[in-house]
Design a protein around this nucleic acid. Structure first.
Lengths: 367, 367
DNA sequence: CCCCGGCCTGACAACGTTTTCCAGGCTCTA
DNA sequence: TAGAGCCTGGAAAACGTTGTCAGGCCGGGG
């Protein structure tokens, strides 16, 4: 169930449905057999069934056989909810993604899952669709489910809402972006260094007018990459015309407008730095169409974050390692769950420049 | 927690850890306040707290204020596990994916999530990494968590293990591939029709020797697509040389070998049909390299399932609609959860041929 | 003035599991 | 043969929540 924001509970969809349909007071989940039923059928005590089901010692082989037989006949399956209530640990961790459909997060999520699995833990994940409010709903719903730990890829920039949860013992690690207004573990890519290297690469190939199209600057990663861009320009003693800098939403329309703006006019940019994979994809499309039209000199492009088939297309990128990001975050989480009490750590994972052609195009004659 | 296969319970990783570390008997989750604590602090009864937290009517504004104050002061959050135990419904559905990192499943998962969210339901998903045993572990672990329903993208081909669960009331819908040895709802893409159309498209452009590279035939979708290929060839009265047909794992090495085999020899194929997106990607790479080397006549290509940037690269594909697949499966699931008792349904979603260039290349002179 | 009906409120028993604790019956040893 | 253990099984109490139900209080009508 998804819970609304701040107060610990207000009626929800689910509420209204269940209230309506509840007539009898005993739920019984369709018609699930319980340990008691199994015990009755096998002619043994309740605890004996528990022992068998959990593989505890101290049960005669013959008794065990009878119990297993009853389990199979009835189709019994232990209710982990009840179990958790008694034991206190859920052996479950939650992952709040930003967008399930983005391959970058898919790889990250998969790495987290592998680590969780190696620790005998179930992973629950959901995505915030880049909406801060949904991020909060989701994270708190997971806390209400009493996950042992949480990995969050922030959509919002204020995570104080997690303070009570963390104080109550929910281990929490942030990935890809740091927490907002909260001191917590974080595992990040080196956005600043990567962008700086990418832009420096363009400069090294002779470019002086370089455009930057990235995400909204309230997103930490976007801000870092922009900072890297400015640093590289400054390193080279190049001025930055603010018309070359276009932070904002990364939907195709906005990106298209931004890029076309930079390529128009008397002094167009000769190279582009794309702030994330969505921008890169749109830019590739745009530049390909432009070349097909034979419209102006070729424009160089370096993108932050790899894109599928980027090698075939010859797109030069700053590649992140989403799997390493996920793996590292998960490992840190389990370190916390195993009791590590060190101060919050921030781990930064390096990036790699992959030169494939688009970043090595020299400036056109108009430069 | 991940449970081992058939018997209802054997010791696991988690077991051995918790047994070892349990000394005190009361769990208390770190140090979570309960409704009882809130009640004590607010000077009211337990049930009153429950009423406030759940937004039930019949509480004085003044009392409500006191309760909310205590909730905030203590950082209380309702324990949904206990709630579920009492109420019987978890308002949670499970999704067993085949591979989180595959964009196709990412989009499918996202669509499922949107529908679940619209129904006020939490989605738990995990991936089987294409391993039938992991699929089973995961699905059963979700059942032990008492999800209300399950959407499964099969990795294995025997799903009888779900019979007791379904009988016990877990609504179950299969997506992308049908269940094995089980009569259940399924939502599928039209692999047969799509492949037939794609191959017919190649034939219409003059090809007579067409290669098929797809996944292992025990995977239902792969078998269907192969069937579509054969049907199209037969429709046109063309013979199929078995050396042109290469089902098997879709890792780059195997695909590379298969394709190179078909392109060698005195009578090479002049066109390729790629059975899924991974094959397509590898084939695109291969053919691009071949063209760059100026090695032989260009080879036509149609792929099943779209790939990112396929438009820019000019790859002709049979596009599926993963979002529609996910949405439809989820809607069917909720129909079941709302009590629909109709016989198991099989829904087939159509595909679309996107002609972008690679599928319209005519056969070379050697043909 | 009393009684009734309506509101709030809280005590108590579930839900299905694990844990603790104890009681038998057995075997083994002195 | 008796006593001391051990093995096996069962009863009862938790875990944190919600459903039921009864009691207390108030105001209004008879």
């Amino acid at each position: 169930m998804i819970r609304r924001t701040a107060p610990a509970g207000t009626p929800t969809l689910e509420e209204s449905r269940t209230v309506a349909e509840t007539t009898r007071s005993a739920p019984r989940y369709g018609n699930r057999p319980t340990m008691k039923d199994v015990a009755a059928r096998a002619g043994v005590g309740l605890k004996t069934v528990s022992r068998v089901v959990n593989g505890e010692p101290g049960v005669t082989p013959e008794t065990e056989r009878r119990v297993r037989e009853a389990v199979d006949a009835l189709g019994f399956r232990r209710n982990d909810g009840a179990r958790v209530l008694r034991k206190g640990r859920t052996a479950t961790v939650g992952l709040v993604l930003e967008d399930l459909a983005d391959p970058f997060y898919g790889q990250l999520g998969r790495a987290v899952e592998e680590v969780a699995r190696a620790h005998g833990t179930l992973l629950i994940n959901g995505s915030s669709a880049e909406d801060p409010e949904r991020e909060q709903e989701l994270a708190l719903a997971l806390c209400a489910r009493r996950v042992d730990g949480l990995i969050v890829i922030p959509a919002g920039d204020d995570h104080r809402y997690l303070e009570p949860e963390i104080r109550a013992g929910v281990a929490t690690v942030f990935a890809d972006r740091p927490a907002g207004l909260l001191d917590a573990d974080a595992v990040l890519s080196d956005g600043f260094g990567g962008a700086r290297e990418g832009v420096a690469h363009l400069i090294a190939h002779g470019h002086r007018r370089i455009g930057f199209v990235g995400d909204r600057p309230r997103i930490h990663t976007a801000a870092e990459r922009l900072r890297g861009y400015r640093a590289a320009m400054e390193d080279a003693g190049l001025p930055v015309d603010e018309r070359w800098v276009a932070p904002g939403p990364t939907d195709p329309r906005r990106v298209t407008e931004a890029v076309e703006g930079m390529l128009a006019g008397p002094e167009p940019v000769t190279a582009l730095f794309a702030g994330n994979n969505r921008v890169t994809v749109t830019a590739v499309r745009l530049l390909a169409a432009r070349t097909a039209r034979g419209d102006g000199a070729p424009v160089a492009l370096v993108g932050f974050d790899d894109v599928e088939l980027g090698d075939v297309l010859g797109v030069t990128v700053i590649a992140q390692d989403p799997a390493a990001l996920g793996r590292t975050a998960a490992e840190q989480l389990f370190r916390r769950l195993d009791g590590a009490a060190e101060a919050p750590r921030r781990v930064v994972i390096g990036t790699r420049l992959l030169a494939r052609g688009s970043g090595e195009i020299p400036p056109g004659p108009s430069a």
